[in-house]
Design a protein around this nucleic acid. Structure first.
Length: 597
RNA sequence: GGGGGUGUAGCUCAGUUUGGUUAGAGCGCCGGCCUGUCACGCCGGAGGCCGCGAGUUCGAGUCUCGUCACUCCCGCCA
């Protein structure tokens, strides 16, 4: 007999009755009846009830065992009587009578409970992650993550994508996030950087003549954490394709994402092709470049209504003359809400930094009511109803500000109202593309033209448009994929031409010398035959998070760091020895310690 | 870097609004009883720098200030 097990803890059925079996696992629960004792033995595959009676010579030993100890049990698989069958367990038709019992590893008193109970605070869960991971929910999440990644790999390779590995020790890139640096021993004073993404490598793979690249790529960025953003490191489904248009990229990734969501959830999933929403339309109608399409509310521009004859709402009129716009968010079936409902929203708006949140309610007869209704004559009110698609029993909220601010704030109002009124479609994954991002934007503080997203994107219209257009009118072949308001990924058709790249950078104020210096490797590659190419890189962690329906990325990550980018289990980061520093030609220049008073 | 929330037993939390005897509950732990439980049950027990430090007060878990930790958000994340 195998020293540890003949079966797993999830395996035994009626078919095994009468067999002598051996199981190993963790003591999930112990129920001690004095003369009769049950142990629920657990491994990754399930739980099997083991039983021992007081007449057994092993009884005392089993009685001593503490939960979460690892033990090996040998005995006979026996049927449970009809009234003791447990349908909650897959093995609940049978149990194992303990004949022999070996303690492989006794557990001390636990700092956190594994079986049942609420999970403790995160610092304890992270410090004892190996215990936390034994909990049912974490086992489920981590298994799901593994299955999703396997499924993605298969879907990609089935489409002819090849998996590549790119370097982890590479060079610091001048654009983007803060790099993690690794000092070089052989080159004093020089540093490697961990890749923020294999962006340049995947483009170079295309230049190298490979056609369809993908990688479950680790990415490292030294930026502060969020609930949906790990500090330090995360994974992307990084992909790139040669000789493709934007639509070809969409056509390749849409079935992968749709398929993965369909495979692992019961929820409704947007079928390909996903809606494509131009950036400017997204900002107008949804007030964000990450529209959550579960929210049915649509923002409309009602500037014209407030300049109509007879409108005396001067706060808006005056702002409009200095370039402001009016955006409106409908509040369906809210006209009968008490005054406190509107006051609460108004208070919230002030907390968000807005002057307030104007509104009109339309009663059953369609008559406009509310603090500002009297400044807006009927003709203008009718136009408002017509444009915004509201009517009797609805209300409508107004945001008046310069276009960018108005967009962003009306987006917040839309999100807030959607949540408050419980309008979001339930049990649904709504996927869409945001496309046609502007290539450049004007920095409002400095007045300078800057890249608005990825400087390596191909400008729409190519070199000719680049030379003749107002930079802020230029669009890029740059796109994001959004699921339920969460950005899964950015991507682009890349700029594969050295001449266009130099021109694109010169518009953003980079001299040719600077570009040559900073991106010499890429430019050189583009001068020796580069195929048109493009791709994207959906975040694996966020996909898993959405499918697992977890609000927090640490719930679907094996060994995450906390918000301060510390690994509480491994105690990283940590100090290193003097010799290690010496080898790396480093001397510490620490900030002064805060004085103790 | 900034703002919010939280911090009380090994764990999850009540108690803080309105300062006032000995700071409670559930789970866990230890001891006892229990032959069909599966969140077993019953009896008993141990376990507290109320995050830490100052201050106000006759008296602070409770009020004030500072500080630390965790978390959420803003900045940041091409």
């Amino acid at each position: 007999m195998h020293p540890y097990r003949t079966h797993t803890c999830g395996e035994l059925r009626r078919d095994h009755i009468g067999q002598n079996v051996r199981l190993s696992g963790w003591v999930h629960r112990k129920r001690d009846h004095g003369n009769l004792l049950f142990i629920d033995l657990r491994d990754q595959y399930g739980i099997t009830q083991c039983v021992i009676e007081t007449d057994s010579p092993k009884f005392h030993e089993v009685e001593e065992i503490r939960p979460e100890s690892v033990v090996t049990v040998t005995g006979e698989t026996v049927a449970r009587s009809d009234d003791t069958v447990n349908l909650k367990l897959s093995t609940g038709q049978v149990e194992v009578t303990i004949k022999s019992f070996t303690v492989e590893s006794m557990a001390e008193t636990l700092p956190m409970q594994v079986a049942g109970g609420q999970p403790p605070g995160e610092d304890i869960r992270l410090r004892y992650r190996f215990l936390d991971l034994r909990r049912e929910q974490m086992q489920k999440n981590i298994k799901l993550r593994g299955a999703i990644i396997t499924s993605i790999r298969k879907r990609m390779t089935d489409q002819g994508f090849m998996e590549f590995q790119t370097p982890i020790l590479t060079s610091s890139s001048p654009e983007g996030a803060r790099d993690y640096l690794v000092p070089s021993r052989l080159h004093p004073g020089q540093f490697y950087a961990l890749p923020q993404a294999p962006q340049q490598f995947k483009q170079l793979i295309m230049v190298s003549g490979f056609d369809r690249y993908f990688q479950i790529a680790p990415c490292f960025r030294d930026e502060d954490a969020r609930a949906d953003r790990s500090p330090g490191e995360f994974y992307q489904l990084d992909m790139e394709m040669a000789f493709v248009t934007q639509e070809d990229v969409f056509g390749a990734i849409e079935p992968v994402l749709h398929g993965v969501f369909e495979e692992f959830t019961e929820w409704k999933v947007t079928s390909p092709p996903f809606p494509r929403i131009p950036f400017r339309e997204a900002m107008l109608r949804y007030g964000t470049d990450k529209p959550d399409l579960r929210n049915p509310l649509i923002i409309t521009d009602l500037t014209e209504c407030f300049t109509m004859e007879g409108v005396t709402f001067n706060a808006f009129r005056k702002a409009i003359t200095s370039g402001a716009v009016v955006r409106a968010i409908p509040g369906p079936a809210t006209a009968k809400r008490p005054r406190s409902f509107f006051d609460k929203l108004n208070d919230w708006a002030r907390d968000e930094g807005a002057p307030g949140l104007g509104y009109i309610t339309f009663d059953e007869a369609g008559i406009g009511k509310g603090p500002i209704a009297k400044y807006i004559p009927e003709a203008a009110q009718n136009r408002i109803k017509e444009l915004a698609g509201v009517g009797s029993g609805d209300s409508i909220f107004f945001v008046c500000d310069q276009p960018n601010n108005a967009s962003v704030f009306s987006g917040l109002v839309r999100t807030r109202l959607g949540a408050e009124l419980d309008l979001l479609e339930k049990n649904s994954y709504r996927l869409c593309w945001t496309v046609d991002f502007p290539m450049y934007e004007r920095n409002e503080e400095t007045g300078r033209i800057e890249f608005s997203h990825n400087p390596f994107s191909m400008p729409q219209g190519g070199l000719q448009k680049l030379e003749t257009s107002d930079p802020t009118d230029l669009l890029a072949y740059q796109y994001d994929i959004i699921c339920n308001g969460v950005e899964l990924s950015s991507g682009a058709i890349r700029n594969h031409r050295a001449d266009v790249m130099l021109k694109a950078f010169s518009i953003a104020g980079y001299s040719a010398d600077t570009v040559e210096e900073k991106f010499g490797g890429m430019l050189r590659a583009f001068r020796f035959g580069a195929p048109p190419h493009g791709g994207l890189a959906p975040g694996i962690d966020r996909i898993v998070m959405l499918i697992a329906n977890e609000p927090n990325i640490r719930e679907i990550t094996l060994f995450p760091m906390n918000q301060q980018a510390q690994d509480l289990m491994m105690e990283a980061p940590n100090t290193v020895g003097a010799q290690q520093l010496k080898d790396l030609h480093l001397r510490l220049a620490l900030p002064p310690k805060p004085k103790e008073s």
